[in-house]
Design a protein around this nucleic acid. Structure first.
Length: 516
RNA sequence: GGCGCUAUGGUGUAAUUGGUUAACACGCUGCCCUCUCAAGGCAGAGAGUACGGGUUCGAUCCCCGUUAGCGCUACCA
């Protein structure tokens, strides 16, 4: 049975790259009937926070990715990791390194690494020149017993090469000479990342490791640990990274909140839309989908899949998912920090609007309700006697909305009398024609007397009224749109009269006069 | 510095594994529809597949090199 895991470190909000890793793990597990587990990698005590852990769990829930079994905290297994390292010393597969710990500043590690490597190539020292590597077991144990501090390093073979088959990147090879005797345990006894990951994956009986490409080269080291521990090595699949425009790394520090999943939740994105967009990054979902159609049922299902091409429900994604269709080049998440219309990826914005437009009412309504509740616009009657009206209103206005926020922003006037007037709209549709000061009350009176009050009768009334006043119907229509909704754009105006209702429509037409 | 990974319009991805007028989606432009804005429909611009060499009758696809970007190279994760 397939067992996969999502293993984020709780050092900030859930990164969208991590969210995609979670999604792909989940899809893989669900497709193959396996288990999807969650492990919080909180071994870096200084940087890990409970708040971050909560945000990860919330993020997964928001995305609809449920995990199986109990969530595991890596820090709880530290004793196990230590024991494993000690066992490796006993077996002669690791050794105590009594070299005093070198302090290094976090800021310029990369530079230091390069400098050290350059120096080493001059002096001819290599990864195996540690003097403690071949210390006798007795002396090593004696010095440890005497209380001398030591780190534990894995003893990597001098010759040969490591190789594994990555499900995405293919055959990966690396000379042992390239791999240092990596530290398993710090001199303070704290287990390090590579050891912890391997021990936990063994413990959790993980069969397939699906994670970001940034771990690709370190995989060789981890395989060495599996082998030293006598455990079977899982299958690996590395996912291409998600980069910012210009091919730069997408980082919280440089790009800010744009990389955080919560940003999208708070900005009114639908989980289904966001998830769908994420799935398309690095995955050629559309290439093969109708590959093997055997039964009429499958054919019908395949056809329904094609209705939107790239638009896929979780179920459709699961069905179409395969590691083979994941490709190797990094995907760019496109956005322009200086352009408010393009604050995030165009296609993501489009996809969210597409979902808002097409989602079945019963799925959308609860989301809209939550948004209205959060902004104080919700009324219980929308779920009771005005239920029909509410559904009709949402259907009408959702056609041109992009996010859930629009229901409480642009859509505000549909749910109450407290709404803002867009200056440009007032100028264009009201102030430009001073005659409206007299005409609007006339229209208001006629609208008020319209019987019955329907879309058709409102249209007839307005057009008749415009004829009598000798103005174009468009003048009234546009003026009414701004008077009733505060905006210059929106749904067909007669629908709006019908939705807003006789009394409020007339009132808003009269009140608009003071804006002229 | 060393090692590794990647390279198809602005972006996400196709191209029956060597034979296509290089396709689709987003974005962009124009037109139609129309009370506005969307949506929708139609039409269009935009890549000869990073660059340079091979192999081949024929390379987006295979090989080599160059360049660029990214990753790893920590007693970080």
């Amino acid at each position: 049975m397939i067992r996969v895991r999502f293993a984020p470190s709780p050092t900030g909000y859930l990164h969208i790259g991590a969210a995609r890793t979670a999604l792909f793990n989940w899809l893989y597990a669900r497709k193959l009937g396996g288990a999807f587990l969650l492990r919080i990698e909180d071994t870096d005590l200084q940087r890990s926070t409970d708040e971050s852990t909560r945000s990860i769990i919330e993020g997964l829930r928001w995305l609809g990715l449920d995990y199986d079994e109990e969530m595991v905290f890596q820090s709880a297994n530290a004793d196990l990791h230590r024991a494993a390292a000690l066992r490796l010393i006993e077996a002669g597969k690791a050794y105590r390194d009594f070299t005093p710990k070198a302090e290094r500043a976090d800021a310029n590690v990369k530079q230091e690494i390069a400098e050290r490597a350059r120096a080493a190539s001059h002096t001819g020292t290599d990864h195996r020149s540690n003097p403690f590597r071949d210390l006798s077991a007795a002396e090593s144990a004696a010095r440890a017993a005497a209380g001398e501090p030591f780190a534990v390093r894995l003893k990597v073979a001098r010759e040969g090469r490591s190789s594994f088959e990555d499900a995405v990147y293919g055959t990966q090879e690396r000379d042992y000479a390239e791999i240092e005797d990596l530290v398993l345990l710090r001199s303070d006894g704290h287990p390090l990342y590579n050891l912890s990951v391997v021990c936990d994956d063994i413990e959790m009986r993980i069969t397939d490791v699906i994670r970001g490409q940034d771990h690709l080269t370190n995989t060789h080291k981890q395989i060495l640990i599996y082998e030293a521990l006598g455990a079977s090595v899982p299958r690996f699949a590395h996912l291409p990274l998600i980069l910012a425009a210009g091919g730069k790394k997408l980082s919280k520090r440089i790009h800010g909140e744009i990389v955080s999943l919560t940003t999208y939740r708070d900005a009114g994105f639908l989980p289904a839309a966001f998830r769908n967009f994420l799935a398309l990054l690095g995955w050629a979902a559309t290439g093969v989908q109708t590959a093997s159609i055997e039964t009429p049922g499958e054919a019908a299902a395949a056809q329904s899949d094609e209705r939107g091409g790239e638009i896929m429900s979780l179920g459709e994604m699961t069905k179409n998912f395969s590691l083979e269709r994941i490709h190797r080049n990094p995907a760019i998440f496109n956005f322009d920090a200086n352009n408010p219309k393009r604050w995030t990826d165009d296609k993501l914005l489009w996809m969210n609007a597409e979902y808002i437009r097409t989602l079945p009412g019963e799925e959308l309504l609860p989301l809209v309700r939550a948004e209205l509740e959060a902004s104080g616009l919700w009324r219980e009657e929308y779920a009771g006697e005005r239920r029909e009206w509410f559904a009709r209103t949402i259907d009408l206005i959702r056609q041109r909305f992009h996010t859930l926020k629009d229901f409480s922003g642009q859509g505000r006037a549909y749910f109450g009398d407290e709404f803002d007037f867009d200056e440009a709209a007032v100028n264009k549709n009201l102030r430009k024609e001073p005659r409206l000061r007299e005409l609007l009350p006339v229209l208001a009176a006629r609208i008020e007397q319209t019987e019955p009050f329907t879309l058709e009768t409102c249209e007839a009334t307005l057009r008749a009224c415009a004829d009598e006043a000798g103005v174009k119907a468009g003048l009234f229509i546009n003026a009414a749109r701004t008077a009733l909704t505060g905006q210059s754009v929106g749904p067909s105006m007669f629908e709006v009269f019908d939705i807003i209702g006789r009394e409020a429509s007339a009132r808003r037409l009269r009140e608009a006069v003071r804006l002229i």
